[in-house]
């Protein structure tokens, strides 16, 4: 029973890692940018939701809608203002640029909202339980699991079934060819940044009742989302979901039976082991290059 309860809570946190990781993968596979500000972007949008819900007194659904809009705007704005001018930069240059953005966002959050931890008013309760087959599940876990799955399905539909998704995939294959074919490449990049930030915001909102709202709330979930993305393969959307779930379950079972002190480290050790066997991650495509 202890084991299954560990697996259950691992699935629940793992699906949130997956949502955070999806934003990283979506952006990476389209534009080859590894966004180190993904976590802080999610944190700032969650802070915006907090302000809307408390000071502005907007109802929950309205706050969520406004927050997701704000996330989209922030993401694409960052693309236009910063990333596009440094488009020629190397992977490292982009990592440093986004890490600089992360510093700015984290610092701004402390200045604007203060460093203290806040509680986000949330309609689902952690303290209403259902006992199923001897396992205890709370309302919040069920709710956030459902939202995660819906998010993943919507993303699947967006990428695979819409015209925009097609453009996105075309750009990720070869942006020069896509441009020749008349695809507005810049707009595709900007929208991808926006969607990625929205995915981060959903992750932040779902994490908020568990980790609470603070400028450092996304530090660990971002690293885990990144790890999930690498584990599954950075260019594979199903990969990051599987990666996130595996990560959540493995670290919980390890924490439960071996050591809670090394719970976070084990995630990275596992990734290194997997990468040594499969350098492109579990579901990633083999890295091909032209000389």
């Amino acid at each position: 029973m202890f084991f299954w309860q560990l697996v259950l809570s691992g699935l629940s946190i793992g699906s949130l890692y997956a949502v955070v990781g999806l934003g990283i993968v979506l952006l990476y596979r389209t534009s080859r940018v590894l966004n180190f500000a993904h976590g802080d972007l999610a944190m700032v949008t969650t802070m915006i939701a907090y302000s809307l819900l408390t000071s502005a007194g907007v109802v929950f659904a309205g706050s969520v809608a406004l927050t997701l809009l704000a996330a989209f705007a922030l993401g694409s704005l960052f693309y236009f203002i910063v990333i596009r001018p440094v488009k020629e930069a190397t992977l490292l240059g982009q990592i440093i640029t986004t890490a600089g953005f992360a510093l700015v966002l984290g610092g701004a959050a402390v200045v604007i909202w203060g460093a203290g931890t806040k509680a986000l008013p949330f309609p689902l309760s952690r303290f209403r339980f259902y006992d199923v087959f001897g396992l205890r599940i709370d309302q919040l876990t069920i709710g956030s699991f459902i939202v995660s799955v819906i998010t993943m399905l919507l993303l699947y539909l967006l990428v695979q079934k819409t015209k925009f998704g097609l453009a996105m995939r075309a750009v990720s294959q070869n942006d020069a060819a896509a441009r020749v074919l008349g695809i507005p490449v810049r707009r595709v990049y900007a929208v991808t940044w926006g969607v990625s930030a929205v995915l981060g915001a959903i992750g932040g909102l779902l994490l908020a009742p568990v980790t609470f709202v603070s400028p450092t709330m996304m530090f660990d979930p971002f690293l885990k989302g990144f790890a999930a993305a690498v584990l599954g393969g950075l260019d594979s959307l199903p990969g990051v979901i599987i990666g996130g779930v595996i990560l959540g379950v493995v670290e919980n079972v390890f924490g439960g039976y071996v050591s809670t002190a090394f719970k976070s480290t084990v995630a990275f050790v596992m990734i290194i082991a997997v990468l040594l066997v499969r350098p492109e991650g579990l579901l990633g495509r083999k890295f091909q290059r032209r000389v």
Partner: peptide, 18 residues
């Protein structure tokens, strides 16, 4: 124990329950 960077303490709670 837990680490300062941990974002979820459900494993710790389950160990207490165990």
């Amino acid at each position: 124990p837990y680490e300062l960077t941990d974002a979820d303490l459900s494993v710790q709670a389950l160990l207490i329950g165990q």
